[in-house]
Simulated scan of single mutants.
Amino acid sequence: MEKIKGNITKHLIADFGTFQLYREDFERAIEQACQELQIDDLKSEGQRPWKAVCKRVGEIIFNDNSILKDKQLYDNTCMLTNYNRYNYNILNNICDEYIYISDKYNKLCSTVAFSNWCNIDCGVIDNWRLNKESSPKSYEIWEKLQGIRKDCIKDRAYDNKSPVGAMFVGNNEFGMNQPGIGYEATQARALTANELPQLGGANSQTIKALSGDNMVDNAK
């Protein structure tokens, strides 16, 4: 936060050296995008108009997205280069602001909308999921977006009177309602060797009841 003119404060998102990016810059870009797209109430709009707004925000603020690239140069024996890397510390701050604004307007978070927000190709951000070892910071941003999206879907399911659509998305993307996946699947205790059914053994008749009782007890 940076204080200006008395009690008025501006929320600093990123300092690029030559200029500073504030929350107010995103809000003005959203307002401009809504005017261009003839959107009166962004909160009531669906996901597709929201993605269109995010795209215009990215075009307005990051028309030249090279500002998001890492300025640190590395010596690869032939030349100094930044390996075309992005500044992931700055992008992480921008990601936090994107999540905040998405919550403010009650929108699902996604890598697609975030890529629009930053004016970065979506394929680039999707590939960050492969960078856990080589580029942990980019992977952490991708992982954060996935976690927030899953949380958004659950919130949407709770908020909606008919949560079928939200749960369809959750099931399709995260397997929330598939057998063997999710919270319920982790509650079933694995049977011991003594509990496994033996051919002709007495416990072969009680195995189903035993496993069912254990699942109920563990789920409490």
Results as ranks from 00 to 15, higher is better:
residue 117 W to D: 00
residue 106 N to C: 10
residue 110 S to I: 03
residue 107 K to G: 00
residue 101 I to R: 10
residue 100 Y to L: 10
residue 117 W to R: 03
residue 101 I to F: 10
residue 96 D to I: 11
residue 94 I to M: 09
residue 105 Y to V: 04
residue 103 D to Q: 15
residue 116 N to D: 02
residue 90 I to C: 13
residue 112 V to R: 02
residue 91 L to R: 12
residue 110 S to W: 07
residue 117 W to T: 01
residue 100 Y to A: 11
residue 111 T to E: 11
residue 103 D to V: 07
residue 111 T to L: 12
residue 115 S to H: 04
residue 113 A to Q: 04
residue 108 L to A: 07
residue 112 V to T: 10
residue 89 N to P: 13
residue 118 C to W: 08
residue 94 I to C: 08
residue 103 D to N: 15
residue 93 N to F: 13
residue 106 N to T: 08
residue 99 I to D: 05
residue 109 C to T: 12
residue 114 F to A: 04
residue 97 E to A: 11
residue 101 I to P: 05
residue 100 Y to M: 10
residue 100 Y to G: 06
residue 118 C to T: 13
residue 101 I to E: 09
residue 94 I to Q: 06
residue 104 K to T: 10
residue 105 Y to H: 10
residue 93 N to L: 14
residue 115 S to I: 00
residue 93 N to G: 10
residue 104 K to V: 05
residue 110 S to R: 06
residue 90 I to L: 09
residue 100 Y to C: 09
residue 93 N to K: 15
residue 118 C to D: 07
residue 113 A to M: 04
residue 106 N to A: 11
residue 97 E to W: 09
residue 120 I to C: 06
residue 102 S to Y: 01
residue 117 W to M: 02
residue 94 I to F: 08
residue 97 E to M: 14
residue 118 C to E: 08
residue 99 I to H: 03
residue 93 N to C: 13
residue 100 Y to K: 13
residue 116 N to L: 01
residue 102 S to F: 03
residue 112 V to P: 02
residue 115 S to W: 00
residue 90 I to P: 14
residue 113 A to R: 03
residue 101 I to H: 09
residue 109 C to P: 12
residue 107 K to A: 03
residue 118 C to N: 08
residue 102 S to D: 04
residue 89 N to C: 13
residue 91 L to D: 10
residue 101 I to S: 08
residue 95 C to Y: 01
residue 111 T to H: 11
residue 89 N to I: 13
residue 90 I to D: 12
residue 102 S to E: 04
residue 103 D to A: 12
residue 113 A to D: 00
residue 95 C to T: 02
residue 98 Y to S: 09
residue 111 T to V: 15
residue 113 A to Y: 01
residue 117 W to A: 00
residue 116 N to M: 02
residue 95 C to N: 04
residue 107 K to P: 00
residue 113 A to T: 01
residue 110 S to Q: 07
residue 93 N to H: 15
residue 102 S to I: 03
residue 96 D to K: 14
residue 117 W to Q: 01
